[in-house]
Design a protein around this nucleic acid. Structure first.
Length: 334
DNA sequence: AAATGTCACAACCGCCGCCAA
DNA sequence: GTTGGCGGCGGTTGTGACATT
């Protein structure tokens, strides 16, 4: 079934960057009449634009509740965590980041976060560490690493060359990979958890009450989240872990004024991330990092985008932190 | 100083789902 | 049940600014 294009390409409608005069026309019209009926809006507003162009200009740029400026660490952390849950559902992610548009988040992901994840050896699609980049697996699969002697590195004089934290991390990661499961049985994993109080604490924080309403719409989890949300997810008939739909809202509650019209005329004030985070212990437990916890949410935005700083060094997502118990510098290891 | 490369982001394009006729 | 309009979404492109050679 074909559809007539929203905008006839040969009807003389203007394309390209918007001028301040056009912006003013659009703003004035929407302030008087409100948004809606985008097809007729340009004609009524005196604009030589198609309705879709007007809608995009309004929703992505002119809306009064849009938060301009750089993304804070907290926002970046939220984006990464939500992306690991939702994938490229930019509008769904934007709905949980007051003042940010899906387009902005999408651009920021593609130009900043994705590159940083790759740089750190993290697959931006699956959010899984890419040990292939680090070439750790061959080492960890070796008989050397399989030694049960905790001092084997000492024996071989390797301790000074190998970051022990990274080794612990790699151990955990490999254990989470079914291909390496035989290397690390459940006892080993349990010991690792006990060994790491921080991880133990975070796991406890995820012990939320059993989710009810099994008939609700479910969302298939990305593989890496199995570990993170193992306590609340359940298996579907295909054996995939699923997250009941209401649990996403428990971790990332939607702002109260998600209605576009309400959001448009009622700029969010305290309904920001601080409220989101403070209202949710479970999420808070995962989102607090040494870096973010020392940075007030309403302090001046940390230089995240736009700067030319070493992005690997400044980057620290909480999701990553869950799997990276300490702030690790991959460069130290490689 | 000029040429070239890279980055950031606004805007566009095409498809999809919903809904009314 | 079918068709077509509309709003929305995600992927992609165009282009100006900035950095590097």
């Amino acid at each position: 079934m074909g559809r007539a294009p929203c905008c006839d390409k040969n009807n003389g409608l203007k394309k390209g960057p918007w001028t301040p005069e056009e912006d003013l026309l659009l703003i004035n019209y929407i302030q008087k009449h409100g948004p809606g009926n985008w097809r007729n809006l340009p004609k009524n507003a005196g604009l030589q634009r198609c309705g879709k162009s007007c809608r995009l200009r309004w929703t992505n740029y002119l809306r009064p509740d849009i938060k301009r400026g750089r993304f804070s660490f907290e926002e970046e952390e939220t984006i990464i965590q939500l992306h690991s849950l939702l994938g490229n559902k930019w509008s769904a992610i934007a709905a949980r980041l007051p003042g940010r548009t899906d387009n902005e988040i999408k651009n920021y992901w593609n130009t900043h976060i994705k590159k940083r994840l790759l740089k750190m050896g993290i697959d931006p699609v699956t959010h899984r560490p890419r040990l292939d980049l680090l070439d750790l697996s061959s080492f960890l699969n070796s008989s050397l690493f399989n030694s049960t002697n905790p001092n084997f590195l000492n024996y071989l004089g390797l301790q000074s060359q190998v970051n022990s934290e990274l080794l612990k991390l790699a151990t955990t990661l490999l254990a989470s990979n079914p291909q390496n499961q035989e290397l690390y049985n459940s006892q080993t994993l349990h010991e690792n958890t006990l060994y790491n109080p921080q991880m133990q604490n975070q796991i406890q924080q995820f012990q939320i009450p059993a989710l009810e309403n099994p008939s609700c719409q479910k969302q298939v989890l990305q593989p890496n989240m199995e570990q993170l949300l193992g306590n609340i997810a359940c298996q579907n008939s295909q054996g995939n872990l699923e997250l009941p739909c209401n649990s996403l809202d428990e971790f990332f509650p939607l702002p109260t004024n998600v209605n576009s019209n309400e959001a448009m005329y009622n700029s969010p004030e305290s309904s920001d991330l601080e409220a989101l985070l403070s209202n949710n212990k479970s999420f808070d437990s995962v989102s607090s990092t040494p870096i973010s916890s020392t940075t007030p949410l309403h302090s001046s935005p940390t230089l995240v985008n736009g700067g030319k700083e070493d992005e690997t060094a400044t980057f620290c997502s909480d999701f990553l932190k869950y799997q990276f118990p300490e702030l690790l510098d991959i460069n130290e290891f490689v």
